[in-house]
Design a protein around this nucleic acid. Structure first.
Length: 574
DNA sequence: GCCGTTTTCGGCCCGACTGTTTTCAGTCG
């Protein structure tokens, strides 16, 4: 699931952007955007559907359905190709700069012939934007700031995009005859929030068949390097994947070495030297004789060095080796420990799937409980009303019990206003099983204002969880500049949990903030913020991030049995 | 371009903020 849907989503989004840039009907652009989002979040593989079936998907009509079928059968869409021809790809890339939308991008292209981020930088530095209508000094500064933010993210991609490719490569190479093991390593195995390139390892006696299969994968656009031990490809999406084939008896050494991090590897290599060994990607060897000590598994290598196996998400040289030596390595949370999702949406607001579909999908994940938390009225664009949310509550109550083992919680995601104010008065909030409260706007208040604002939300007796606490979006927007030490202290004092938002674009809190917050004694909720059934599996990224923050089951309220969770949700929060 | 109907075309998420302009266009959530 997912692959063709995501391709089609990207295609329709591109068309929407091009329509907007070329000054086409704004509603047409929005129609394509809506269709893109619907297809991206649709549970059925679109490549199995015909024109009629496609039209069953909300926001997909005849015209878009036909374009999708054209794409799936020929790999191209004539209308899109024609639009592409009139607007260079670089112009569309300008849209990724925050504060630059389609209108300004078009002006830049038409007036200054700017058709790439580099050309835009040049134009700014040559002060050529100043003469354009609607552009001023501030606009220039915002553009420079936006470009700097993008360049900082560099060529790294979101973990979800890397994971999709890695899962596919591992699945494909595992089919090759003679495969005794296949796994991804590197920063992806350590669940870093962004990924540069993907390392895949195969255990096998002969490397040839794997290198050949790897080079001829359908999504391999280019073979960058090809040898006996290592082959590198670039995928059709421009992502580099390295394959290394190891002898099965050197699997552990290779996996350890290529998982990293570099700093962790240096530490354990130093330990090896002190104990008369030499550690390399081929395994652990006796320094004097050069004879192999162990290499088949990571566990054996760690054990020989006097260490327990260390989970990859902890291998960042943040004290994990010292903790391991003292027997104080945390037993980090696992995805199986999660009993429910505490932040999800439906099509009552900006989610894509109806309540029943979300619940059915959640039950299929084996959850013991599941919270529906649609947006509240102050996020005006969602048009929430008291009547709508109460009607939803009735529906939730009626559906509770339909899935034998899963209980339903009716909640909401409140908007934390500029003054720390919330959408509804306390007596109305008391009617919810669970309130998540999040910042959605006014990101540029002063540090004091932002801090007070978050603390006020924590102090509300009904707010149990602060959603995506820093409101950052990876590669797009930095987190808000609040004094989070103060916020963490307030959360600990009031018994308010901090969310670890599992959406790959957010991963908020991030690992370092989690480590800091944990020292205050705060509890956490690992939630997906799912807007479609296809987002529910994002839980793995939230759990990975929680692991990187050294969290155990006990730190995370949605691993707790329902009764204990309910007691926490009830407060007190004075 | 999609949708929903007042079945054939008009409405489409609304409000606020930013920066430029001096009344509003563009962008964002």
């Amino acid at each position: 699931m997912g692959r063709p849907n995501e391709e089609v989503e990207a295609l329709l989004q591109e068309y929407a952007d091009l329509v907007a840039i070329s000054g086409g009907d704004a509603f047409k652009a929005r129609a394509y955007e809506k269709a893109a989002r619907s297809i991206g979040g649709h549970p059925t593989d679109v490549s199995t559907l015909d024109v009629k079936g496609l039209q069953e998907i909300p926001n997909v009509g005849k015209s878009i359905a036909e374009k999708v079928v054209e794409y799936l059968s020929t790999g191209r869409v004539t209308a899109l190709e024609e639009t592409r021809a009139s607007i260079p790809a670089g112009v569309r890339a300008l849209l990724t700069i925050p504060t630059l939308g389609p209108r300004k991008a078009m002006t830049l292209y038409e007036e200054l012939q700017v058709s790439s981020v580099e050309q835009l930088l040049d134009a700014v530095h040559e002060q050529r934007l100043r003469d354009l209508k609607g552009f001023g000094e501030k606009t220039e500064a915002n553009i420079l700031h936006g470009i700097a933010l993008m360049q900082k993210a560099g060529k790294r991609i979101l973990i979800s995009a890397a994971m999709d490719v890695a899962d596919q490569v591992v699945a494909d190479l595992s089919q090759v005859e003679g495969c005794e093991g296949c796994a991804y390593a590197g920063s992806l195995r350590r669940m870093q929030e962004t990924i540069g390139d993907i390392d895949v390892l195969v255990a096998a006696d002969a490397s040839g068949p794997f290198m050949e299969a790897f080079s001829s994968l359908p999504y391999a656009a280019e073979v960058v390097a090809s040898g006996r031990k290592k082959t590198s490809i670039r995928t059709t999406k421009g992502l580099q994947v390295d394959l290394r084939v190891l002898p099965p008896d050197a699997w552990g050494g290779g996996l350890l070495y290529f998982t990293g991090s570099k700093a962790h590897n240096i530490r354990i290599r130093e330990m090896a030297i002190r104990q008369g060994y030499k550690l390399s990607e081929y395994g652990l060897f006796h320094a004097k004789s050069g004879r192999k000590a162990v290499s088949a598994t990571e566990e054996e290598i760690y054990a020989k060095l006097g260490l327990p196996w260390i989970p990859p998400t902890l291998r960042e040289d943040r004290g994990e080796i010292a903790a391991a030596l003292k027997g104080e390595l945390p037993e980090v949370i696992q995805e199986e420990d999660v009993r429910g999702d505490l932040h999800t949406h439906t099509d009552l607001t900006d989610g894509l799937a109806p309540l029943e579909d979300m619940i059915t999908a959640a039950a299929a994940r084996g959850y013991a409980y599941y919270a529906v938390t649609d947006h509240a009225p102050n996020l005006y664009m969602q048009r929430m009303t008291d009547q709508k949310i109460l009607a939803q509550r009735e529906q939730v109550r009626a559906l509770d019990g339909k899935h034998r083992k899963m209980r339903l919680l009716h909640g909401t995601e409140l908007n934390i206003g500029p003054e720390g104010d919330l959408d509804w008065p306390d007596d109305f909030l008391a009617g919810f099983d669970l309130c998540v409260a999040s910042v959605h706007s006014h990101f540029n208040q002063t540090r004091d204002e932002l801090t007070r604002r978050l603390i006020r939300a924590c102090e509300n007796p009904h707010v149990a969880i602060i959603g995506h606490p820093t409101a950052r979006q990876i590669g797009k927007r930095p987190g808000i500049d609040a004094d989070f030490d103060e916020v963490f202290a307030a959360c600990a004092r009031t018994g308010t949990a901090l969310e670890i938002n599992s959406h790959p674009q957010r991963l908020d809190l991030c690992d370092e903030d989690i480590l800091r917050a944990k020292r205050y004694g705060v509890k956490f909720a690992v939630s997906t913020d799912a807007h479609s059934v296809t987002h529910l599996p994002y839980m793995r990224y939230g759990v990975g991030t929680a692991q990187r923050g050294w969290l155990t089951k006990d730190d995370v309220i949605n691993t707790w049995p329902l009764q204990r969770l309910r007691r926490f949700l009830a407060g007190p929060r004075t």
